[in-house]
Write a protein that binds this DNA or RNA. Structure first.
Lengths: 197, 197
DNA sequence: TATTTTTTCGACCGCTGGTCAAGTATGCTT
DNA sequence: AAGCATACTTGACCAGCGGTCGAAAAAATA
């Protein structure tokens, strides 16, 4: 296997340890079974390792979402729900996700949120465009609107940033659903899936 | 003056310098004209100094916003614009902002964003409620809706997370304005202030 | 085989946030 | 004034960090 990927695996393993283990470059080297200097032969900084890991871990998930959307012939509102559920279940399998929500991993967490938003937003934008074509939505700026929706999802719903109760989350989801239904001139109930589990 | 505030002043001064990066505890001590050990007599960690500074600096800004809103008798849309501009100009004076947008400070950055959102959302919610009373808005969940608006503002517009060009920012602001106008059933153009200037 | 190129390595560097025993200033009690 | 306790100050010191580097080993090329 690629040496770079061995390093990424080592880091991932460290991030998944629940004791909140430190994740220094030396630790990564030790876990990967190589010298610390070798790390810097493949990556030029620790930040670059972070970036590469985020890139690698989320790539497959995003790709699955993309394929799912391309294959689906459902109406836009249903596609929204489908995408939402697919993404939800994928990330819940990602053990790393849970550990990103710890204070000490705030930097990589932030990067991964940015990656998710920029990768998913074109997919969401396509759904909105389809909705506009089929006259079930009205929206002049699908890409930007998608980013707005996702930023709420990434930020406000993030358990690492806010500690909402399930009831509070439901209220927020319901408010978002209403805002979107009116904001996109969609049929009432189109976004019910957001707060129904 | 309070010793703790002298320390905070020293840190603030350092953060306001162009290079910004060098802000070690030793630097703070030197600037404050005290020994490094004394810092730890008043704060138990560097993070705690950060927290105290964020708390101190944002408290006044938020308070100003609150007073401004209480005194204003404008209609809700104008209040929105007023709040938006007041907050914008206040934070632009806050040189600290730049420091928060560096990788290594992601944790405290996240904390300050959360603080901003939870402090400002009740104020925004009150504006929405006023709009509902005056029939210029329609909204069932003002508090949650306020949080949604602010989370877009805190996350998507954050220069530490995303590197949008001014043009891109304007597009997003315009999309948000449209979404809010429709989402709150507000008059067209109510949220123009978001993307003008 | 000889020579060049790629890869590995850990001692080392400057710097960080944080600790601590020792010392000084302050104010209270008698 | 003297004795004493408490509040405060200090910089040398520490472990650990991300990152560097020259030397050595391994692999590729001739």
């Amino acid at each position: 296997m690629d040496k770079a990927n061995i390093i990424l695996d080592a880091m991932k393993t460290l991030l998944e340890q629940d004791d909140g283990a430190s994740c220094s470059v030396s630790d990564i080297a030790k876990k990967a079974g190589i010298g610390k200097g070798s790390i810097y032969y493949y990556f030029k900084s620790k930040d670059e390792i972070f970036d590469a890991l985020v890139e690698r871990e989320y790539h497959q998930i995003i790709e699955n979402c993309r394929v799912l959307m391309n294959r689906s012939h459902a109406d836009p509102a249903q596609k929204f729900a489908l995408l939402f559920r697919s993404y939800r279940s994928s990330t819940s399998l990602l053990a790393m996700d849970h550990y990103l929500h710890q204070q000490q991993n705030a930097a990589i967490h932030q990067k991964s949120l940015a990656k998710i938003l920029s990768s998913l937003s074109p997919i969401v934008a396509d759904i909105i465009r389809q909705g506009v074509e089929e006259k079930s939505f009205r929206c002049e700026k699908p890409q930007e609107t998608a980013e707005i929706i996702l930023s709420v999802y990434c930020f406000l719903y993030d358990p690492g940033i806010f500690k909402w109760t399930p009831e509070q989350l439901k209220e927020k989801a319901s408010a978002l659903a209403t805002l979107l239904e009116n904001g996109l001139s969609a049929a009432k109930g189109s976004f019910q899936f957001l707060y129904q589990t």
